[in-house]
Nucleic acid binder design. Structure first.
Lengths: 345, 345
DNA sequence: TGAGTGTGGTTAATCGTTTAACTAACACAA
DNA sequence: TTGTGTTAGTTAAACGATTAACCACACTCA
């Protein structure tokens, strides 16, 4: 590895002079500048980032904490983060919390995520990252870990709004778009298959559902509310109940694509034609949506943009004046496929 | 941030002594050791990793170069890598090549990946990573970049065998497992829907297919060979041809799950019952396999294990004696679902 | 002439560690 | 007494950069 010293010797100057021309922090004579630049070109020298960081107190590295990189929105978001960071000459170190499987430790006790996350954060602090982004839903785990740290911090994807800096997407508007789309296609009897009743997205998407119905002066009918747990089998099971309804709805707003897949598969098994006999709209636009027997019309969450904006926000925090509070809520958009039919009025 | 100096002052010793007790590189008196440890405990001190790395010439960081983190096997592999590295106290910096979309640059010219990858690698070198793992299929892009670098390097997932150090999975055996499974269920007329004809996995899986047929003394029938391009629509289209065959096969070996999804969907549309009228087996075990109208029996590629082994191999290379050549080929395993039926002989 | 002002460059401290080399003190044997 | 070891701890150089402070020289102007 060539160092400043090598260049200095080659050009016959002091290492300070070399450093000055590299960073342009001081005016040197044209003559010496040229000699130094030639020496640099000769050796394809690049400054040692560790030494530089140590001296400057900035690493140009940010830590990204993800719940599990295999979870799809997460990979998309990380992709967006990386792209933005790279553009600005920053690097990321990735720490994966393996939340999808690390529920129990070797003694079969439920893992204390706080201490687990804490380990990852400490590791990042030791590497002197310039900031941290947390990507995921379970942000409550991290609150009292990150609070005492005076380091720029951004939540990406998190739905909570109690944090100072976060980037998320608009669940309410997304749900309204979906339901309005059904209404605009002539549907009046619309059921909803919600996610887990306790979850935040369920509440928000439900709010959008009800608002849309109200705006269109449609009645809110108790018998049209169903709850699953976000997983495929619950879509399949709940669909049985929906189809058994005395007066069956003409359309269903299903709160995610996995459950929608279950709905579609059960409906088809029962001999129903989607969308002619029943329209279905999903949420999330997962890969699966394109590959169902009936391509699913659904709501796309702007995951990469969430990544982009998170990185942008964090970089602003590290460099610029500290913004006190900053939240970005990005809009979703509707992906039109083939699972919704028009109804003749 | 507390430093060695702070601890030293607190304990009334020199910073060298503190360093020695932390790293256990020298025997100090019980008395002073205790005083120093107390001071450390008081301040929750952790050594500054940049300074340490600078001095030691080791960063305990490895670079992971991925083609696109959103590609599913890649996320799984990265997950495995991360887990293994963390266990050994290493960190990773992730660099995403965004291969899925960065085909053209701003001037609409095809991106020169070599120079693009080179930028990422240079960036990693500047961060003084202790080694690099490349995750993906398009390893030919990187060959002449990495060759001149004398840094431990491992290819993960790469199918090529011309490299010194790589970890991959056994396509041939995987395909044989799939075909043998069909044969063991009584099938004699077995078609194959291959991936893109030029791709390496196609060749290998085809080899497995033919070997299995030969081993069972079954004829190789030209009219039973079909080719797609790994994507869903090609599965759908090719299935039309397969069903139009004068004597239709009783089972199909489809070389990936996406095409298998296309096959199943078209078959169902045509009124065929899977698996009773026709058995289908896939490859890859993507998420989608569980959510098809007929849950797909398929071959699972050991992605996380590939990640594990890659990390392990790289760490051995960085620390231990340099192994000249080292290749690991991991076995696949069959996931039994519901898309294959037994045939009465 | 002498004070002030640029210009072009060097010296040396600093960031926070590790570690070879050294010192001081004491014990023990010849 | 002298020499030899052992033990416990310190000093200071090094890793590779940045940058404040300094210096030497030439030029300007009252």
């Amino acid at each position: 590895m060539t160092t400043l010293k090598d260049i200095a010797k080659l050009a016959g100057v002091s290492i300070a002079s070399v450093s000055y021309v590299i960073n342009g922090n001081k005016q040197l004579s044209e003559e010496t500048t040229k000699r130094i630049n030639e020496a640099i070109a000769q050796t394809n020298f690049a400054p040692h980032s560790l030494a530089k960081s140590l001296r400057m107190g900035k690493t140009l590295t940010i830590g990204v904490l993800v719940e599990d990189i295999r979870g799809m929105p997460i990979a998309d978001i990380v992709n967006g983060i990386e792209e933005n960071l790279e553009e600005h000459g920053y690097q990321m170190i990735l720490s994966d919390l393996h939340m999808l499987e690390k529920l129990y430790n070797q003694y079969d006790q439920i893992v204390d995520y706080r201490s687990y996350i804490n380990k990852s954060v400490q590791q990042m602090l030791r590497s002197h990252v310039d900031g941290i982004i947390y990507v995921g839903l379970h942000d409550r785990h991290i609150d009292n870990i990150i609070d005492p740290i005076e380091l720029p911090f951004v939540y990406a994807y998190s739905h909570g709004s109690k944090h100072d800096h976060y980037v998320s997407y608009n669940n309410i508007d997304g749900a309204m778009d979906a339901v309005n789309y059904l209404i605009n296609h002539g549907h009046r009897e619309i059921a909803v298959l919600a996610g887990h009743p306790d979850s935040f997205p369920t509440h928000q998407r439900m709010e959008g559902f009800i608002t849309s119905l109200n705006n269109a002066d449609l009645p809110i009918r108790d018998e049209y509310f169903f709850y699953g747990d976000w997983e495929y089998p619950s879509g399949y099971e709940q669909m049985k109940k929906i189809l058994a309804l005395p007066n069956r709805p003409t359309a269903i707003f299903v709160m995610n694509d996995l459950m929608a897949a279950g709905c579609i598969n059960f409906a088809q098994e029962s001999g129903l034609k989607i969308p002619n006999d029943l329209s279905i709209i999903g949420f999330d636009n997962r890969e699966i949506a394109s590959y169902l027997p009936v391509p699913l019309t659904t709501i796309q969450v702007p995951n990469r943009e969430i990544g982009h904006e998170s990185a942008k926000m964090l970089l602003e925090l590290t460099t610029g004046s500290t913004v006190d509070k900053n939240a970005i809520i990005l809009p979703c958009n509707l992906i039109e496929r083939a699972s919704v039919a028009s109804i003749s009025l």
